[in-house]
């Protein structure tokens, strides 16, 4: 029986053929939606009547977004959440990474795995678990707070009545910031630990010989050497924080909570399209959000980049 022979693949085309699965998928699920949303941002569209109902409206969607109270409110929420969940991540992750690096030898992988676990757990599972924990009457968090409130001396610091975490606008933002912080701090610890391991040991040895205290070593050796990683990790946090969606979406049932206090911009533009049927304005908002993310990423890099600092400063 003759064997079926496939046409020969010339070396010239082989690489393209081999990467084509990715490129095709990326074109369909990456590039096309991106371009389509750019087109949509300049159109109005009544989705239920099909594609031909799109009409070009120029910059009207952008003008609408700029004047839209809820768009600004959602940007405010996003900024608040990004800052309140992002900054503590790094303030905790750096000392924690240093501690793990110095003090834990044998169980390091286990400890690191424990910290990293929230990052690889499904967001949906996390949000459902936390919504049970934040429950007003039966949640673990309120029960713990009430137990603490019974203690002598420090009891007065804790609320004696159950806190309505997810129902009151002033409580829901901290609750979500806490979840985001808990979820990503381990990821940052892993990043910083990797960077710490690449700092040459002789720097510390020399400093110890010169009589530098561990605190001085941290400020003058560890931190400067960590800077490239800080730039990288902060950039990831900024981008992730500004695109925050799943945690607030699930915890507030997709609506953003009372007074939309936890409605991030990513959530709002999704709701604009799918709930309020305004795909044009939703797309315009998504491109405006992209602009803001790009700008803030650039500013973060500029602020933390050592080369610029040396060139521009003092």
């Amino acid at each position: 029986m003759p064997r079926l022979r496939l046409p020969a693949l010339s070396p010239r085309w082989a690489p393209y053929v081999f990467v084509s699965p990715f490129l095709v998928l990326f074109a369909v699920f990456g590039v096309f939606p991106l371009l389509f949303s750019l087109v949509l941002a300049f159109h109005t569209w009544e989705p239920a009547s099909g594609l031909e109902s799109m009409t070009f409206v120029g910059l009207e969607n952008f003008a609408f977004a700029i004047e839209d109270e809820w768009f600004w409110k959602s940007l405010g929420n996003t900024g608040w959440l990004a800052l309140a969940s992002g900054l503590p991540q790094h303030l905790v992750a750096i000392p924690l990474a240093v501690f793990i690096h110095r003090s834990i030898r044998r169980w390091r992988d286990v400890v690191l795995g424990a910290w990293f676990l929230p990052y690889i757990t499904s967001t949906v599972a996390i949000a459902i678990m936390f919504s049970a924990m934040f429950s007003t009457d039966f949640g673990l968090i309120n029960q713990a707070l009430q137990a603490l409130a019974q203690l002598p001396l420090i009891g007065g610091w804790f609320p004696a009545d159950p806190v309505d975490w997810l129902g009151r606008p002033e409580n829901i933002k901290p609750a979500i910031a806490l979840i985001v912080f808990w979820r990503f701090v381990g990821f940052n610890v892993v990043l910083y630990l990797a960077a710490l391991q690449s700092i040459p040991k002789d720097l510390y040895e020399a400093a110890t010989l010169d009589g530098a205290s561990p605190v001085r070593q941290f400020w003058h050796i560890t931190l400067p050497n960590l800077r490239p990683m800080i730039v990288f990790a902060t950039t990831l946090t900024v981008i992730g924080g500004l695109q925050l969606f799943e945690e607030p979406f699930i915890l507030t049932g997709g609506r953003g909570g009372s007074d939309q206090a936890a409605m991030t911009t990513a959530m709002y533009l999704y709701r604009m399209a799918f709930e309020f049927n305004d795909f044009g304005a939703g797309s315009a908002m998504s491109w405006m959000l992209f602009g803001i993310v790009a700008l803030l990423t650039w500013l973060t890099n500029r602020a933390l980049d050592p080369r610029r600092r040396q060139g521009g400063g003092s």
Binding site: W45, P47, S49, G50, L51
Partner: peptide, 15 residues
């Protein structure tokens, strides 16, 4: 419930 209506919105918009 919610998934169904999102899917119907998408189906109608793209025919």
């Amino acid at each position: 419930f919610t998934d169904h209506h999102s899917a119907m919105t998408t189906a109608l918009s793209t025919s």
